[in-house]
């Protein structure tokens, strides 16, 4: 897979991890406003990464990528076990 897509996916992984951690923390600390604000910023950044990946023609999500890439990237871009 191209270097650009791999770099965006790497950023998605790191930023996505911070979102998961914030989500789990907020599950047990729902009134922690500072973390809530951080989470909102992380999610905003994640959306931008989603968009850049889509612009590269990579379909990331099975049901939520709108519009689906006009190429057949869902079928032909590598699956996680086909990478690395």
């Amino acid at each position: 897979m191209e270097e650009t897509k791999l770099r965006i996916i790497d950023h998605l992984q790191k930023n996505g991890q911070a979102i998961i951690d914030a989500r789990l923390w907020l599950d047990t600390h729902p009134n922690h406003l500072k973390v809530l604000q951080e989470a909102q910023e992380l999610v905003r950044r994640q959306r931008l990464l989603y968009r850049s990946l889509q612009q590269e023609g990579f379909t990331l999500q099975n049901f939520s990528d709108h519009p689906p890439s006009t190429t057949s990237s869902w079928l032909f871009d590598p699956w996680p076990w086909e990478m690395g």
Partner: peptide, 9 residues
């Protein structure tokens, strides 16, 4: 919803 990436490499 499935994302076509691993959580960690």
């Amino acid at each position: 919803i499935y994302e076509k990436r691993l959580q960690y490499p």
